[in-house]
């Protein structure tokens, strides 16, 4: 059985299509990623699938329940870590978990056991009885992850679970997420704009941009689309360099983005010296050259002609977005 099936799901805000007819299926036990820049429509998708927002059109089944008609069953089947903080700062960590357990009808005995187990999982036993306002950002995130597990949901929604966290804390969270998935078999749908995160955690990834899924597959298969290693060149005349490099043997594709040139080749390490020679012969100076195996970032560039990071740099916009979503 599929844990989640989504058909033609769309959401319009005053005529603007934030999510524009997406389709996907997630198998039981899978970690499925929605990877895309800020404003791609990831949170809106999660909000619809978790019954917070009503879709403008389309349908979905979650754990076998119809999103439109079996809202309560859907809600019982899912746990969710929202993009924005959603804890009661005045309560302690344990009280936040207890509140959640009570709301979801977990019996008193089971609640105690579960709270103990999840606190152990995210290594928060020592902080459990302090008010949440004394927690660091990473601790709050871990507590939210733990909270989502109290009622033993079949499916866990993680909306940008490591946004704004330092690298070590991020690693830790990845570890917990992997462990939950492998030990409990929880199906997960995760959104992120960090390619490493999607690459490391997800069995399958859907790349989203402007409300649409532009590619969907396993990370390995997605990268194969690029046909090999990626050489990025900074040159004085990228246009003319593109022309000469395009004619060389052993080259799969040449694309320009900004003042840079992306060259894909099956065997990058032997192609790179040849490119430099050809450029020299044609009077084009190369300022820098990097060679790397393809990342999901390159996959995104391949499909959209833009980098995910460009949007990320626009932090003011991201901030505004976060505030708006938080205040809704």
């Amino acid at each position: 059985m599929n844990a989640i099936e989504v058909k033609g799901l769309a959401k319009k805000f005053n005529g603007f299509a934030a999510v524009d007819g997406i389709n996907f299926e997630i198998k039981e036990g899978e970690i499925f990623g929605l990877l895309g820049p800020n404003g791609a429509g990831k949170t809106t998708t999660i909000s619809m699938l978790s019954t917070i927002l009503k879709p403008t059109s389309g349908s979905a089944t979650i754990n076998g329940f119809n999103l439109a008609t079996q809202q309560n069953d859907v809600r019982m089947s899912i746990g969710i870590v929202f993009q924005d903080p959603s804890l009661d700062d005045e309560l302690t960590g344990r009280e936040n978990l207890d509140f959640h357990g009570r709301l979801y009808g977990v019996s008193s005995k089971e609640r105690k056991e579960k709270i103990k187990a999840v606190l152990e999982l995210v290594e928060l036993e020592e902080k459990a009885d302090s008010q949440v306002k004394t927690y660091s950002g990473g601790m709050k995130r871990r507590l939210e992850l733990a909270r989502g597990l109290i009622h033993m949901p079949k499916i866990l929604f993680l909306d940008e679970p490591t946004i704004g966290l330092d690298p070590q804390t991020r690693r830790k969270l990845w570890e917990y997420i992997k462990r939950i998935n492998s030990e409990k078999g929880t199906t997960m749908i995760l959104t992120t704009h960090y390619m490493e995160e999607a690459d490391f955690l997800c069995n399958r990834i859907a790349i989203v941009d402007k409300g649409k899924i532009i590619a969907s597959n396993t990370p390995e298969k997605l990268k194969q689309v690029l046909g090999g290693d990626v050489i990025t060149l900074e040159a004085s005349e990228p246009e003319s360099l593109k022309k000469v490099v395009g004619k060389m043997a052993g080259i799969n594709e040449v694309t320009i983005f900004g003042d840079k040139l992306n060259v894909t080749a099956n065997n990058g390490s032997t192609v790179l010296p040849r490119i430099i020679k050809v450029a020299h012969d044609n009077g084009v100076s190369i300022r820098s050259a990097t060679l790397k195996s393809p990342s999901l970032e390159d996959v995104f560039i391949h499909y959209t002609g833009r980098a995910i990071r460009e949007e990320e740099a626009d932090s003011k916009n991201a901030m505004r977005l976060r505030m708006r979503v938080g205040w809704r």
């Binding site: 809600r75 903080p85 959603s86 709301l103």
Partner: peptide, 16 residues
Amino acid sequence: WDRQFGFLKEILVSPV
């Protein structure tokens, strides 16, 4: 405040 601090979402998404 619950809305601003996001806690309202946690309540509203629960099956009650």
